[in-house]
Simulated assay, not measured.
Amino acid sequence: MSVDPEIEDEYTRVVSVEDVPRGRGIAVDVNGIEIAVFNVEGEFHALSNRCPHQGAPLYKAGEEKINAEHTWTETRGGVNEGDLTVSCPWHLWELDIKSGEHEVSGKCIGTFDVEVTDGDVFVRV
């Protein structure tokens, strides 16, 4: 199957669907823009990869901690599929995965349109 010409013109292929496990994210670079792509119940979302608080890499949300074992969580943030949020791996700021907003502070990060075609994820920057 061929990719829709509109998607080819306006979007950039960033990853294969199978490369992003459900409930996780990966980091990609599109024309110098660092983007986190998340798989939420098979639906893909893309937002800036840096938390608006102190610039933590959001794609690492949910990874197992390698330090700070004395804290209250075994992982560094994570994706909440029910609430459609991602929690920052450093200070657990919870961001809306669709809007990029941190409700408490009102700070917001960029989000990007996503299309999935023939098993590939495309992002429009």
Rank of each mutant, 00 (worst) to 15 (best):
S2C: 07
G42R: 13
G119N: 06
I109G: 15
D83L: 12
K98E: 15
S99P: 14
K65V: 06
P21Y: 08
P52I: 13
N49E: 02
F112D: 01
R76L: 08
P52T: 15
G55R: 15
F38M: 05
L92S: 13
P57S: 15
D19M: 05
E10V: 04
P21K: 09
G62K: 15
W93A: 12
V30I: 09
E34W: 05
H70D: 11
T12H: 05
R13V: 00
E115L: 01
E8Q: 15
V86F: 00
P21S: 11
E10G: 08
E18D: 12
V114S: 01
G25Q: 15
T111Q: 06
E10M: 06
E43D: 09
T73F: 02
D4L: 05
D118V: 03
A27M: 14
H45I: 03
D9C: 07
E6N: 14
N31C: 07
G82Q: 06
T73Q: 09
V17T: 10
V17C: 07
V14M: 09
G106W: 11
I97Y: 05
E81V: 09
V14I: 03
L58D: 08
P5G: 11
D96T: 10
K60Y: 11
V20F: 03
G32S: 08
F122E: 00
G106M: 10
E43R: 09
V104D: 10
A36D: 00
D19P: 02
E34N: 13
K60A: 12
W93G: 11
N39I: 01
S99G: 15
N80F: 05
R13G: 01
T117E: 03
T117G: 01
V15F: 01
G32Q: 07
G100M: 13
W72M: 06
P21L: 08
G119E: 02
E69T: 08
T111Y: 03
A36H: 03
G32C: 08
V37N: 03
V121I: 14
R124K: 12
T75C: 04
W90F: 06
S99C: 14
